[in-house]
């Protein structure tokens, strides 16, 4: 399983990345939406992208829209991982094409639950 972790905070990239690695993922970090699109364009196709919302250069919502408008990336599950927590914002992200939405702060258990919802929790992991 491969995941792209997109956040402008390196601490958050490490936190999300290490949780996913504990669930058996290979993780590629990216500091904003543009950088993440570059990773996709060079041919790295992850099973999952965890995307922050507020980032410089290209924000998470723009990234989600860009990915969903390209049929080549249809297999990538998109999960917003953000501190934006109003109902209207969650609705916007889902409408743009996000499959799931995690509100910061969150625990490793919450990440496991979300992966299970997306059908992306490797079977051998059951803590």
């Amino acid at each position: 399983m491969r995941a792209l972790v997109i956040d402008d905070s390196r601490a958050m990239r490490r936190i999300v990345g290490s949780i996913l690695e504990d669930f058996g993922y290979e993780v590629r970090p990216a500091g904003d939406g543009r950088e993440a699109l570059d990773v996709l364009e060079e041919g790295y196709l992850p099973d999952l992208a965890c995307v922050d919302w507020n980032m410089p250069v290209m924000d998470g919502l723009q990234f989600v829209s860009a990915v969903r408008s390209n049929p080549a990336y249809r297999s990538v599950a998109l999960m917003m991982v953000t501190t934006e927590s109003e109902t209207s914002q969650i609705v916007r992200a889902l409408a743009a094409g996000a499959h799931e939405y995690m509100i910061k702060p969150f625990t490793a258990d919450a990440m496991r639950d979300k992966l299970a919802l997306l059908g992306l929790l490797p079977q051998e992991v059951s803590l």
């Binding site: 889902l94 919450a110 979300k114 919802l117």
Partner: peptide, 20 residues
């Protein structure tokens, strides 16, 4: 709480069945 709704509740259900 915020932490509780993060635990496995699909986002689409959160926005349909809950209000802040």
């Amino acid at each position: 709480s915020q932490l509780e709704v993060n635990r496995g509740l699909p986002a689409s259900m959160l926005v349909r069945h809950f209000t802040r």
